[in-house]
Design a protein around this nucleic acid. Structure first.
Length: 332
DNA sequence: AACAATTCCAACCGCTCTTGT
DNA sequence: CACAAGAGCGGTTGGAATTGT
């Protein structure tokens, strides 16, 4: 028993939109605003599926869309964001005002992939094509060690400055599926100019089954979960956690505080408007939750996005208290 | 000029996630 | 808690446009 289709396929148009259809959609949204896509076609007198209307509006008709070629700056930003976020096109689009996820996705597949290949860079991994694939296993503490510090996830300056390899460096105990799920669940927040997600590295006594359960949520097209550290299983009871909170937000001097509740779709629904406020500017905020972690042990991530050395990207770092440190990095 | 091959992108599809009941 | 509806996302595809022969 599957889900009911999103629309009555038999009575809907498909294929390219006509000018008349476009105009109807524009007129309707101007009058009534976005939202309720399912009922929109009927209300607007369109013989289209609601999904199709939404897509047409978001990708083509929105007034804030920037048409035309991508600039070199946009190219580089997309590459950097892709190295950070992977194929999270909507998140990437959120950092490029006037660009849509579909547009960026297409541009990536048709231009940037080729561009990276010509540079000898694997577009998926952002590693050198000549580079041997390295193991994603991150050294973990031995079973008797109960302290997990930020040093365990220290990111050393990479060979290529644009690379930010969360897979191997930042999330050693967590599958990409989990990370992606977290990313996905914060999409709405991203649409409100603030993206907030956490990488939580957990070393604890867990059965394999428990591990498997904890990685649910995404399906098999995800990469297989990274090997989990099992070092703590001998001891059993003690568990240590390290939270790394990564924030990509509107980095203004008065950055608004992050909320932990997901905005309702109603409040975030006018994403076109909110996306206008995006600025291609990244801000990282790290939270090291372990008492043993000092600010000095935390890692500045921004060099990886910047010019190769921390000093080259004009990042600003500051740290808060020892127990709940806030280490802010700004990439500009 | 005619045809084939390639490129590009708008649109579609299937899936997951969130929300409401 | 279970279920359904709606929204949104990423991958894929069809066909128009462009380029090459």
């Amino acid at each position: 028993m599957g889900r009911s289709p999103c629309c009555e396929k038999a009575h809907t148009n498909k294929g390219a939109w006509t000018k008349e259809e476009d105009q109807r959609l524009i007129d309707y949204i101007r009058t009534h605003g976005e939202g309720c896509w399912r009922s929109l076609p009927k209300s607007a007198g369109l013989l289209r599926c609601g999904k199709s209307c939404r897509l047409r509006w978001i990708n083509y008709l929105r007034p804030d869309l920037k048409r035309g070629n991508f600039s070199e700056e946009e190219d580089e930003l997309i590459i950097k964001l892709h190295s950070l976020l992977g194929n999270k096109w909507s998140l990437i689009a959120g950092r490029l005002p006037g660009r849509t996820d579909n547009e960026i996705k297409n541009y990536w597949n048709t231009h940037i992939k080729r561009k990276l290949m010509s540079r000898g860079i694997d577009p998926q991994t952002h590693r050198s094509l000549n580079e041997k694939p390295t193991s994603a296993v991150v050294p973990v503490a031995p079973a008797t060690t109960t302290t997990v510090t930020a040093a365990a996830v220290t990111v050393t300056p990479p060979a290529k400055p644009t690379q930010l390899d969360f897979k191997s460096a930042l999330a050693p105990a967590q599958s990409m599926a989990e990370i992606n799920r977290l990313l996905q669940s914060n999409t709405m927040k991203a649409n409100n100019s603030i993206l907030d997600f956490k990488f939580q590295t957990v070393v604890k006594a867990e059965s394999v089954e428990e591990n498997n359960c904890s990685t649910s949520g995404m399906t098999t097209d995800e990469e297989p979960p990274l090997p989990r550290p099992v070092s703590a299983d001998a001891g059993g009871e003690r568990r240590e956690e390290l939270n790394l909170e990564l924030t990509i937000g509107l980095a203004t001097p008065s950055s608004r505080s992050l909320t932990t509740t997901r905005p309702s779709s109603a409040s975030s629904g006018n994403s076109a408007e909110s996306k206008l406020q995006f600025h291609p500017y990244l801000q990282f905020s790290g939270t090291a939750a372990t008492p043993t972690t000092t600010a000095a042990e935390a890692v500045c991530l921004c060099w990886q996005l910047g010019g190769g050395a921390r000093g080259n990207c004009h990042c600003q770092c500051s740290s808060g208290g020892r127990q709940q440190q806030q280490i802010r990095y700004q990439y500009c």
